[in-house]
Structures are given as C-alpha cells and as structure tokens.
C-alpha cells in the first residue's frame, strides 16, 4: 500500500469506536488493520490509536482509529474523544440484546456531542456465532453447525437493527471479526460516505500534512524537531 509516484489526494479521518464492553470493537479494528484475530482477547490496554489506509479509486483515506480505552465503562469518556471525529463505528454483539440498547445510547450521544456531519456505521458483530454466517467455516473449523454450544446464538434480527439504522440514517453491517466477514466492507463504506468537503477541512493530529494553509501557519508539531516525520513515515 505504498504511495505511488503520483499520489492520490490523501486525507486523515478520525474514527471513534463505541459500544458495550466485549462486543468486539478492538477485534474489528485488529482484523481491519492487521488482518488478525485473537481468541479471548483481553480488554484493550496499550493500543488505542491505530491507523490504516483505505484506498478508494479517487483518493486515499487514512483512518486514525480511536479506541475508548475502557473510559466508556463508567460513563467517563472525555469530550476530546468525540472532538472532530468524522466517523464512528458503533458496535453491538448480535447475540446480546442489551448491547443493541447500549449502541442506540451511543448513537444518541454522538448525535448530541459529535460534529454534525459525522458518518456513523452501526455494526452487529459476532456473525460467526449465528447459523447464517457465511465464509466462516475455514477459520472457525466447526463446519456447518457454527456455534459449538447452541447452533444459532443470534438474538437480534437483521431486520430489527437494519430498520433502526435506516431511521437514524446510519450505515449498517453485520460482521465477524473472527472470520473477517464484511470487515473491510464497513471501512470502505465509511470512507466512501465521508463527504469530500469535510475532508478538506480535516482536522486532528496527523491531518496537517495535507498542505499547509494560511490558518495552519501557527500550528506546531511538538514531535517535529526531535524525530521529523515519524508519524507519517511508518503509516503503512
């Protein structure tokens, strides 16, 4: 994914993750960024700012993906978390009804706190635990009868979540971080949904490389003199 000699326009997009604990927020990102999955992953520690590029035909979007770092647990997310977020991934576990209720709460919170133009994707994760999971066989290794314990663990119908997403104007996907099903599709859909205009005014750490405009002249890069371009150099 190295830049070509004639690079497409590239923009940074801040994407925040929201959702109940243990719905697979970090696993989705890990799948997207590293194409990797860890069974029984511990709650997130030490990795809360991942980046990944998404190549579209006419432009490149560099996602800066913010994890909650557990600060949502006691309703203690800081305003900084939502600040200038251009996209949000609101994740629920489609085998756990309470997690959709929580997801709706986060959507409302985003509509209240985040920038008006934010692109929100509602994502039902853990599709591999349901009987309609596709393409999971080769990874999970449990053949046609998917979830070992109860066959189909789905508790939230596609219809229900989809209707809600349409009412609120959200992108909607059902995914499996475990098998990778639909994961890239979510991020590509978000990248496509971000309006060109909001990219031009893209803010956030890392966005400054997109050309130094007049209003940017006083911005300073504290890391600059010590390790020049470190942030950009290892982006892919």
């Amino acid at each position: 994914m190295a830049d070509t000699n004639a690079p497409k326009p590239s923009s940074s997009v801040k994407l925040v993750l929201l959702g109940e604990a243990a719905v697979g927020k970090s696993s989705l990102v890990l799948r997207f960024v590293n194409n990797d999955f860890q069974e029984n992953k511990e709650p997130t520690i030490g990795a809360a700012f991942l980046t990944q590029k998404c190549n579209l035909p006419t432009r490149t979007i560099k996602f800066e993906i913010w994890d909650t770092a557990g600060q949502e647990r006691f309703a203690s997310l800081a305003p900084m978390y939502y600040r200038n977020a251009q996209a949000a991934l609101v994740v629920y576990d489609l085998t756990k009804p309470t997690s959709l209720i929580k997801a709706k709460h986060w959507v409302a919170e985003l509509q209240r706190q985040a920038s008006p133009g934010i692109v929100i994707a509602l994502v039902g994760n853990k599709l591999d635990l349901t009987s309609d999971s596709t393409g999971s066989a080769e990874v999970s290794g449990d053949g046609d009868d998917n979830a070992e314990d109860s066959g189909d663990a789905r508790k939230i119908s596609t219809e229900e979540a989809k209707t809600y997403a349409e009412e609120e104007g959200l992108l909607f996907f059902e995914t499996s971080a475990k098998t990778g099903h639909n994961v890239t599709e979510v991020f590509t859909a978000i990248a496509n949904a971000i309006p060109e205009t909001s990219l031009k005014s893209a803010r956030g750490p890392g966005a400054s490389h997109a050309g130094v405009s007049r209003t940017e002249e006083q911005r300073v890069n504290l890391n600059g003199p010590r390790d020049p371009n470190a942030k950009e150099a290892c982006a892919c």
Partner: peptide
Amino acid sequence: AIYGGTYML
C-alpha cells in the same frame, strides 16, 4: 486509560 487506568467521573 490506555495503560489500564480506570476512570470514574
């Protein structure tokens, strides 16, 4: 928080 701190407002 990233290094495991728990926050309660």
